[in-house]
Every structure is written in structure tokens, then in C-alpha cells.
């Protein structure tokens, strides 16, 4: 019996960025310990759909295969998550795979997450340490704080929080939860804090922090368990203070 066991997948496909999406069904042989990636690899090996017709292999992205790179994010049975960490044994069949349509679809399950990387640039999600001479070591970071900041640093820019957010859509220019939480991370770093006001002013711009509507889907969906809504609320407090500093004046430039 077990050699006849199969896996049924219904995949939302799209041939070109501007063409209409369509569904295609696949039935593939079951193997123990399969995940969505290995199921997609099976389709690539033998691209024949459930009707027995030869078709093009389904396109998707992957890289680390251990849920730290964020490349294989897709909507699996209605929930955005990483395909590598989605085990076939734990999924209800037929398994529905869709691209995260909050992002531009390039082909099938491949999406363009550039907007997230642009957002990281916009909020200056880095620590400037370069100078024309050796600047020497920066201030020390307390171990307790380092451990706390490590949780925020787990973000892999996978896009799941943007997909889950009701305020990230084609009608709004909200940058989304992930880059906001990175502002909190880099402002917490002793050297990064030297550019705190710049990052805060960046997220006080259009499409920034204020667009959050507190649906809190992001924190529920984040595969890394990053306290995104706590980050947003903490930044709300920081920007409140920054707003008053900027208006009334402050020596903390």
C-alpha cells in the first residue's frame, strides 16, 4: 500500500509578471519526511500535472533550506511561511501553494522582495563604522542587552509579516513591520545609537511607522517569533519623543 501513497498539490501559477494566474494540480509519489521543497523538486524532476499532461516545471526560490534565509516564503494552505520548514506530513491535502501576492510575482511562486531591501536602505538599517582613519573600538554593549537584541536580529527579510499585514497593499505605501523592527535593533546598538535620530526621522516619513493599524497579524505570523508589535509600540514612543524634540528643540541632536 505505502508505495502507492501520493501527495496532491494545487499550485497557483503565473507564466509572466503581467500574465493572469491559473491553478495547476499535481499528484506526486509520497516519500517519508518530505517537505514542500522536496515536493516541488519532484515536480521539477517530472513535470507532469494531475491530468497526465506534460507541463513546465514550477518555478520557486530557495537557498538555505533551514529557515534562516527567507527566500522560499510562499502561501501554503492559506498561511505565508517558508516552504523548507513546511513538512508534508503536517499539512492537510490537497496542499495549496500560492505566491505571496503582496509582492510583485515574477513567475509561479517566485516573487520580487526588492521593496523590503529598499526599505532597509531607507531606514539606514546598518551601523556606520567607516572613517578616514581608525575610529577605534566602539562603546561596549551589556551582555543582557546583546541577548535581547539578538532576538530582533533574527529577521531574515522573508516578507511573511508584510504578506499578513492588512495595511501593506497596493493602496498604501506602508513599508511594513520588518524594516521598522530593524530600526529598533540598530538604535539599540551602542554605536548604531549615534544615528538614532536619522533612523527615527526616516520612519516618520510617508509610508512609515504611522501607517501601522495595530492588527498585530505580523507578530502572530513571524516565523522567527520576533516581537514586531512591541518594536512598533517602542518606536511609537521614540518617535513621540523625537517629534517633540524636533519641534521644541533639544540638545540631543
Amino acid at each position: 500500500m505505502s508505495e502507492n501513497k501520493t501527495v496532491r498539490l494545487i499550485i497557483t501559477r503565473q507564466d509572466r509578471p503581467d500574465s493572469a494566474p491559473y491553478e495547476e494540480e499535481f499528484v506526486i509519489p509520497y516519500r517519508p519526511n518530505m517537505n514542500v521543497i522536496s515536493a516541488l523538486m519532484e515536480i521539477r524532476r517530472n513535470p507532469i500535472n494531475a491530468k497526465g499532461e506534460k507541463t513546465t516545471p514550477v518555478a520557486w526560490e530557495m537557498n538555505c533550506l533551514e529557515e534562516v534565509c527567507g527566500a522560499c516564503s510562499m502561501v501554503i494552505n492559506g498561511k505565508p511561511r517558508q516552504a523548507c520548514a513546511a513538512l508534508i506530513d503536517k499539512l492537510e491535502q490537497p496542499i495549496r501553494l500560492e505566491p505571496m501576492r503582496t509582492f510583485p510575482v515574477i513567475r509561479d511562486l517566485v516573487i520580487d522582495r526588492s521593496r523590503m531591501f529598499d526599505a532597509l536602505k531607507r531606514v539606514k538599517a546598518w551601523i556606520p563604522i567607516d572613517g578616514t582613519y581608525d575610529l577605534g573600538p566602539g562603546p561596549r554593549m551589556p551582555e543582557r542587552k546583546r541577548q535581547w537584541a539578538y532576538e530582533l536580529s533574527k529577521c531574515m527579510t522573508c516578507g511573511v509579516c508584510l504578506e499578513a499585514c492588512p495595511n501593506v497593499n497596493s493602496k498604501s505605501n506602508f513599508i511594513g513591520p520588518a524594516p521598522l523592527s530593524q530600526v529598533r535593533l540598530f538604535n539599540a546598538h551602542p554605536t548604531g545609537a549615534m544615528h538614532k535620530a536619522e533612523r527615527l526621522r526616516a520612519i516618520m516619513g510617508d509610508g512609515g511607522l504611522a501607517n501601522c493599524g495595530n492588527s498585530q497579524n505580523c507578530v502572530q505570523s513571524c516565523p522567527k517569533g520576533i516581537p514586531l508589535t512591541t518594536s512598533i509600540a517602542a518606536l511609537n514612543r521614540e518617535t513621540t519623543i523625537q517629534m517633540f524634540r524636533d519641534f521644541f528643540g533639544s540638545d540631543e541632536v
Binding site: 499578513a164 492588512p166 495595511n167 493599524g213 492588527s215 498585530q216 497579524n217 505570523s221
Partner: peptide, 24 residues
């Protein structure tokens, strides 16, 4: 303006706060 820039998704994400977001 705020209400009409949201795209409700309580069917997919039936969390309490998401419902409150929509109800608001």
C-alpha cells in the same frame, strides 16, 4: 482615508486584534 487603505484579511488571519482592526 485610513479605513479605505486597509485590505481586510480576517478570513485568513482570524486573530483577535485583526478582528478589532476590522471592527474599528
Amino acid at each position: 482615508y485610513i479605513a479605505f487603505t486597509a485590505k481586510f484579511n480576517t478570513r485568513q488571519y482570524g486573530y483577535f486584534r485583526n478582528w478589532m482592526f476590522m471592527l474599528q
